[in-house]
Computed example of a mutant assay.
Amino acid sequence: MAAKISSYLSHWTAYVPVVAVAALILTWGRDLPPPVVVLSALLLAGAVLAAVHHAEVVAHRVGEPFGSLVLAVAVTIIEVALIVTLMISGGEKSQSLARDTVFAAVMITCNGIVGLSLLVGALRRRFAVFNPEGTGGALAAVATIAALSLVLPSFTTSRPGPQFSPAQLGFAAVASLALYLLFVMVQTRRHRDYFLPITTAGKVIDTEEHVDPPPARTALVSVGLLLVALVAVVGLAKGVSPAVESGVASAGLPQSVVGVVIALLVLLPETIAAVRAAARDRIQTSLNLALGSAMASIGLTIPVIAVAMIWLPGPLLLGLGGTQMVLLALTVVVGTLTVVPGRANVLQAGIHLSLLAVFFFLAASP
């Protein structure tokens, strides 16, 4: 056992998070020259990939569908920390950062990760097969939370602009969190079988095949290294964010692109894990990761931001614009039509990926 753990710790995923944290300590609170920014970005990418590995180790230990929740919660921690950190230092231009990041996360997960997973599954086995009952419930929860937190603020009248009053924000935060926790209970306990992987042949997989779960001690080591990697990701992202913001401004792009960059960064682990699962004919696991992340991104982020607004100055702009509402509505409709049959081919994958491309284009050129 000791030999196995020693070998495990010699893997690059063990020392990269430690090196990244060391770099974070050395660069914290300093103006970084371009070479250091590039090095920090590389370490940031390495810490993200290490987080993927350790989250997958823990996920394999606890099994599905609990495993899908591990990455979702880890990603949400990164997202919330980045948003709050940038809102503290960003001033007026960061008032819509939470909205831009959460909406980008919804579009990337529901169109990008879903589309990639379906494409990989359909190309390898002609059809991507999944459970429509579990996936449909997850999509319904995402649509409800998104509408409550991102659409309604544009139509309420208690406050000018696309924002909630304090009472409305508190209600939306509690309702979103309650709905997310209800979904987690259904996914992990009451209807766990709805979220288990189904092979193309229709076989339900309750445990991973061919590979034994890692020992408990190995999983605990991965939990610790996952936490170290998350700290490194959040800290290094804060360090390189001024360069990202200045780059966005220099390119003449809208400030909302910063939210898209944050969402792309924090969702990289989910994307890699989902594509890997799809390649192993575990499309349900991929969809659990995608929709679970979208739900956690709203259901956990908005309540934390609502609490943080007690100390943060300025208003919190949550309501989407007309173009964004159209994209969200189209995503929900297309997602529903994809989910209902319980199987999808390259056409559905292409439609979702096309919607993601439209989102990226309109984010850069509104």
Rank of each mutant, 00 (worst) to 15 (best):
R282L: 02
L71P: 07
R61D: 03
L139E: 07
P315S: 14
V142W: 01
L119M: 10
P160C: 00
L49Q: 13
V62T: 08
I78G: 14
R124V: 02
A216T: 15
L44M: 12
L225C: 03
G319W: 11
L316C: 05
V248F: 07
T200D: 06
V340I: 15
V73K: 06
T301H: 02
Y8T: 11
W12I: 15
H53R: 14
S7I: 09
I88F: 07
L265M: 11
V52G: 13
A143T: 11
V358Y: 05
L320I: 10
V266T: 10
H11P: 08
E92F: 10
V129W: 05
T157C: 00
L26R: 11
F103H: 05
G170K: 04
K203I: 12
L356P: 03
P33R: 09
L118S: 01
G322H: 08
V114R: 03
V120P: 01
A306E: 03
A105I: 07
K238M: 01
S154T: 10
Y15S: 08
G342I: 02
A273L: 08
I25A: 15
I78D: 15
T135Y: 01
L330Y: 08
A349D: 12
L287S: 09
A243K: 06
L236G: 06
P254Y: 01
R192W: 01
L318M: 13
W311N: 13
K203P: 13
S246Q: 13
H352E: 14
L97Y: 00
A51V: 11
V75S: 15
M185A: 14
P254Q: 00
V266N: 09
L220H: 06
R159N: 10
M325Y: 13
G170D: 06
G314P: 09
G247P: 09
D193R: 13
F183V: 09
I25Y: 11
R126F: 03
S117E: 09
L182M: 07
R125C: 02
A344M: 02
A104L: 08
S40Q: 14
P153N: 07
I145H: 02
I88H: 14
Q324R: 07
R61T: 04
V151Q: 06
A74L: 12
I113E: 04
T338S: 14
R217E: 15
A329D: 02
I83Y: 02
